[in-house]
Design a protein around this nucleic acid. Structure first.
Length: 271
DNA sequence: ATGCGGACCTGTTAGC
DNA sequence: TGCTAACAGGTCCGCA
């Protein structure tokens, strides 16, 4: 479910409430995620003071003096901030209880999420050390994408969704950015020149920045930590709009499945 | 090495 | 109306 803007929205919605607080205890109701919740996390995280909640790609980093809890929400994971006792529901797999009666509750129906305890610098080890640059950082440039695409044949959409190339972009924002840049989603990466990569970088930055400002995209079940929905779904120009008119040129928007994921594109303005 | 397809799960929706 | 199949904001592994 969540891509960079959704993860950032969740981060911003919880950090001020929990940074500086002590982790009182963890309540694990179901440890069977993609990677089972470790005993190490259960023993090491409680008792620590939370120094910061950071984001890297689609991961949240809950930093303490002795280690970092890394959290990936997968397709269907979400966090809720609770300030009173709320009975747990189905798929509420983990509660993190802080002093001051504040709880962060992790819910994940499909259990594709991942929760790890990392000691040492989390950015220097797996899984974070293999991630590509943040798309909003200055090192992510048209020239970088151009260089990384030479000699390769994959579709451009696959390239920008590859977390080792650039991190944080998923199916919705890849689709939207390619539309804004006028590039067909299955265009071979080796056939795109550097100028168009520069346009793509601009499009990616714009889409992500606007989505963060609007609190992410709520198509189905994404919600902020306080339960509110995002607003960027109203600004989607191409995703989910098969059969409708292109907002640029009025031609038909098509939907096709490429590599297990749905793509939407305008046959006229995306080449 | 690169690129594809399938697997991991459950809930919801489209289509017969 | 009710059943079944397909699909969903994401990785991750194994095979050609």
């Amino acid at each position: 479910m969540p891509e960079l803007p959704e993860v950032e929205t969740i981060r911003a919605g919880i950090a001020d409430y929990i940074v500086g607080r002590k982790v009182v205890d963890l309540v694990v109701r179901n440890s069977q995620l993609r990677v089972p919740i470790s005993d190490e996390l259960r023993t090491e995280f409680p008792g620590q003071i939370l120094n910061a909640v950071d984001r890297r790609a689609k991961y949240l980093l809950f930093r303490t003096n002795t280690g970092t809890m890394l959290l990936h929400l997968g397709m269907s994971g979400s966090l809720r901030l609770l300030r009173e006792i709320v009975p747990p529901g189905i798929h509420d797999h983990l509660d993190i209880n802080f002093d001051g009666e504040i709880t962060i509750r992790f819910n994940d129906p499909r259990r594709f999420g991942k929760i790890l305890w990392i000691t040492g610098d989390p950015l220097q080890q797996l899984p974070l050390c293999n991630l590509g640059p943040e798309p909003l950082d200055s090192e992510f440039t048209g020239n970088y994408l151009y260089q990384r695409s030479r000699g390769r044949r994959i579709a451009i959409k696959s390239l920008i969704m590859d977390q080792r190339i650039v991190s944080g972009i998923g199916n919705i924002y890849a689709t939207e950015a390619l539309f804004r840049a006028g590039i067909h989603p299955i265009r071979a990466v080796g056939s795109i020149d550097e100028g168009r990569y520069q346009q793509l970088i601009i499009a990616i930055r714009q889409v992500l920045t606007e989505a963060i400002a609007k609190g992410g995209t709520t198509l189905r079940d994404f919600h902020h930590a306080d339960g509110q929905a995002g607003y960027f779904q109203f600004a989607l120009q191409i995703y989910g709009r098969a059969g409708k008119d292109c907002p640029n040129c009025g031609h038909l928007i098509k939907e096709e499945r490429h590599g297990q994921r749905n793509s939407f594109y305008c046959t006229h303005c995306q080449t």
